[in-house]
């Protein structure tokens, strides 16, 4: 386990990939992960986009649909370390971040890194931990560093947290406050596989676990270069305006008590860039934005009580906004 102590040297500027290389690599990862999670290519694509946009992912789904598999497959494909934290009510912040222990031989305190020091962190059932522990994790997610006993330790790059929540079983949980949900770039649901995919899953798993057969198609360095390449994707002024219009519409929507934050705008744009790059383009389109709007925006909105009582959910609200916000805000043009 290696980690740098703060203050670290400024990282060398990675060499960005060409759009073609980017597309090929991204497709490689996608095929790899799809080998494990059948029939969910769109979700996987979005998950990869979130990873390459340096965001964190919140998977909200019932147990057993492959949340952990997804995280593991992702980690295998990019040849980086994956850590798993099972959140329980008695989990302590130091279990996440690490702790300084007195080493009698050295007669000094030695930092024992916690589970957060990995490339891909799978936080299972994050809503079962106490708010204190949740807060510790979320702080690491935002700042990408850990401070223990006055020492700051930088986390690895790429660094991505995939947290899962069970939306059904809410007893004895501490639901994430809205402010903390905002830290996740996107919320995805994997959902049950359709019948054909489930049959294929059975066939494949008869002999061996496909996860074991995965070979990495990229390494951490490659991922860093991809992240850099995605940031270079062109964002036209009309597109930025469209994204801002969309986010602004969530704030004025009468069904919503709290709209999306400027952070949401930023993350939506970054994910858009990745999606465009995965399509082999050096410019982003509103089509990319529309694919991402629901996963990126829906979990940040707080609906009004009336909406909740009426059975409305925030995904529907965002879809509705997508249907009504003009792609080009000039009146008289489309």
């Amino acid at each position: 386990m290696t980690f740098e102590s703060s203050p670290g040297q400024p990282p060398q500027a990675p060499v960005p990939l060409s759009p073609q290389e980017f597309k090929a690599t991204a497709e490689g990862i996608l095929t790899n992960v799809e080998w494990v999670i059948e029939g969910k290519s769109h979700t996987i694509k979005l998950a990869i986009a979130v990873m390459l946009a340096e965001g964190h992912l919140l998977l909200e789904d019932v147990p057993g649909v492959g949340k952990t598999q997804l995280a593991k497959a992702l980690a295998r494909s990019v040849d980086c370390s994956v850590r798993r934290i099972q959140f329980t009510p008695d989990l302590l912040p130091s279990d996440v971040t690490g702790v300084s222990i007195f080493d009698p031989e050295k007669r000094d305190f030695v930092f024992k890194p916690g589970a957060i020091f990995g490339n891909l962190i799978l936080g299972d059932e994050i809503n079962r931990a106490s708010p204190k522990t949740q807060a510790a994790l979320l702080e690491c997610m935002e700042e990408r560093q850990v401070t223990v006993d006055g020492n700051t330790y930088k986390l690895r790059s790429p660094f991505m947290v995939i947290a899962t929540q069970n939306p059904v079983e809410m007893e004895g949980t501490y639901p994430l406050p809205e402010a903390q949900r905002d830290r996740f770039a996107a919320r995805l649901a994997i959902g049950y596989p359709d019948i054909n995919a489930e049959l294929a899953l059975l066939d494949r798993r008869e002999e061996y676990n496909p996860l074991d057969a995965l070979r990495p198609v990229a390494d951490a360095e490659m991922i860093v270069r991809m992240i850099a390449a995605a940031r270079a994707v062109h964002l036209a002024p009309e597109l930025k305006r469209y994204v801002v219009d969309l986010v602004a519409a969530t704030r004025t929507n009468p069904q919503v008590r709290l709209g999306a934050s400027p952070r949401a705008t930023l993350q939506l744009l970054r994910c858009t860039q990745v999606l465009a790059a995965m399509d082999g383009r050096d410019f982003a389109l509103p089509d990319d934005v529309q694919q991402l709007a629901v996963p990126v925006l829906a979990h940040r909105l707080i609906p009004t009580t009336e909406t909740t009582m009426g059975g409305g959910d925030t995904k529907a609200i965002v879809s509705d906004i997508l249907r009504h916000v003009p792609v080009v805000s000039n009146p008289g043009r489309y």
Binding site: D287, V325, V327, V328, R333
Partner: peptide
């Protein structure tokens, strides 16, 4: 594209403002 949009209007093909050019 302006001409395409006007043609759509003339022939009653409904194109919402919220459609991207590709969707339209």
């Amino acid at each position: 594209w302006d001409e395409v949009l006007d043609l759509a209007l003339d022939y009653g093909v409904g194109l919402s403002d919220s459609l991207t050019p590709r969707q339209a």
